[in-house]
Design a binder for these strands. Structure first.
Length: 445
DNA sequence: TCTGGGGTCCTAGGACCC
DNA sequence: TCTGGGGTCCTAGGACCC
């Protein structure tokens, strides 16, 4: 049996924890660069504001309706997320962190172990909900069902129907059938815009309808094996297990960093500065995960909304490099990224965004084995790697202690003589890092 | 003027190998 | 005339997720 815990309007909820005056009022959080709406309170949703609405398009409405607007504060959200996940991890046998605001729970066999005193899985889910709220201030809903897909569906209903008290357990065939009938096919986990269109055109409107299509049909029209699994999961046959997240962190298979610039850039030096800063950030994440990258990608994008951007595609170009030796050294990665950027560069072009992706991640050590598994005789190289690791550890230590960007490569610095960094974007309404910066600690007088 | 960022998995096709 | 069948790796692209 799976549980799915989902934080309600997570980013808004995080802000509300530290600003109780926001309770009951419409609140939205904006994406990086204050570009789009990415989190909305229930009151904001009721005003018709949509996920992804560009800020400049709804600016007037926000002002008129006195909506409280905030830039995103990922330092705060990340820390709040850790607290929620830690509590969940301490409360049930297995937790898979699915995203910053969602976690799957392993509730297998738990029903049998619950005593009359402890109650059933609904009671357990209810206790978790109350516990998270009491310890972190974050409201959550819980869905419980025999498959992940059904747990997501149950969670969705628990969130929508206030009468359920934030928890829904699909404990019988009858209840599952009822739940499937409640949910439009486009709201099923794994059905996006394209598939929803295809499905409704075929007369499949609800999750219940979708649960009745044949496997062959699902394979043909819903992306092959993915679609087949999706339908099986709706029928109650689990196709995915729980992958517990060790020590409360998420291990990723690729790590990236990308940003839309504060303003369009046409000078290669400026874009190189941005790319260097992105490499530094991504390499930091890479080292925190304890991995080396074998594959490096750099991409640059032109404005995809401009008049020239017909057909929508072709606004982005990327270059990929398989590194001779996997690394997490910012200096090595920056040099390689600069080469890739030079390869991509179109003179005269105007770029609005760039990014780097590190993939082919592996733990140190494994890559040095020779053909027959023996340690390769790379004494000099190994010593070099030791020095590199020491240097990077020192870099990370200083930046952790004195703030991000205290020590960085010259390539990632802004223009000489200070002034605004050309690639840095807007964050006009960012709240303090209440929980992670001593200077930002809330003082209660 | 202004339209996010960071992920996952799967498929298909080509090159190359034995 | 006949035109294998595995396998790998790589790239590009598509769809989805929060």
């Amino acid at each position: 049996m799976f549980g799915l815990v989902d934080c309600n309007n997570f980013y808004v909820s995080c802000e509300r924890v530290f600003q109780p005056r926001l309770e009951g009022r419409p609140v939205v959080i904006l994406s990086n660069n204050d570009g789009c709406i990415i989190s909305r309170s229930a009151e904001a949703k009721a005003l018709g504001l949509k996920m992804g609405d560009p800020y400049f398009q709804v600016k007037e409405q926000l002002r008129r309706e006195q909506v409280q607007v905030f830039s995103s504060n990922y330092t705060l959200y990340g820390d709040m997320s850790r607290r929620v996940m830690h509590y969940l991890g301490a409360s049930v046998p297995g937790v898979e962190i699915y995203s910053i605001d969602e976690a799957f729970l392993d509730l297998g066999g738990l029903e049998q172990r619950l005593t009359p005193y402890l109650g059933n899985l609904t009671d357990l889910a209810q206790r978790l909900r109350v516990g998270v709220k009491a310890r972190t201030g974050i409201p959550v809903c819980v869905g419980v069902a025999p498959t992940k897909t059904l747990a997501k569906l149950a969670n969705r209903l628990a969130k929508k129907d206030a009468g359920l008290g934030g928890v829904l357990y699909l404990d019988s065939g009858a209840r599952r059938a009822w739940a499937l009938g409640q949910v439009p096919v486009g709201d099923v986990w794994g059905v996006g815009r394209q598939y929803a269109q295809k499905l409704t055109a075929a007369g499949i409107d609800s999750a219940a309808d979708l649960s009745r299509v044949s496997e062959a049909w699902a394979r043909k029209f819903l992306g092959g094996v993915v679609g087949a699994r999706l339908v099986r999961e709706l029928q109650g046959y689990p196709c995915a297990g729980l992958a517990p997240s060790e020590d409360g962190t998420l291990h990723r298979q690729s790590i990236s960093c990308s940003r839309t610039f504060g303003r369009p850039l046409r000078e290669q030096a400026s874009v190189l500065g941005a790319v260097s800063a992105f490499v530094a950030r991504a390499a930091e994440k890479l080292r925190r995960q304890g991995d080396l990258a074998h594959v490096l990608t750099v991409f640059v994008s032109k404005n995809r909304f401009g008049p020239a951007a017909d057909a929508g595609s072709g606004h982005s170009r990327s270059a990929v490099l398989t590194l001779p030796v996997p690394t997490s050294d910012t200096r090595e990665l920056t040099a390689r990224a600069a080469q890739l950027l030079a390869r991509l560069w179109e003179p005269g072009a105007v770029y609005v965004k760039a990014g780097v992706v590190m993939a082919g991640l592996e733990a140190p050590g494994g890559q040095q084995l020779g053909l027959f598994g023996e340690a390769a005789p790379l004494a000099a190289g190994a010593a070099g790697e030791g020095r590199s690791a020491q240097m990077m550890a020192a870099l990370d230590g200083l930046n952790a202690r004195f703030g991000r960007g205290t020590v960085q490569l010259a390539a990632a610095l802004g223009p000489k003589g200070g002034g605004p960094v050309p690639w840095q974007g807007q964050a006009a309404w960012r709240t303090p890092a209440y929980t992670t910066r001593l200077e930002d600690l809330m003082i209660v007088k």
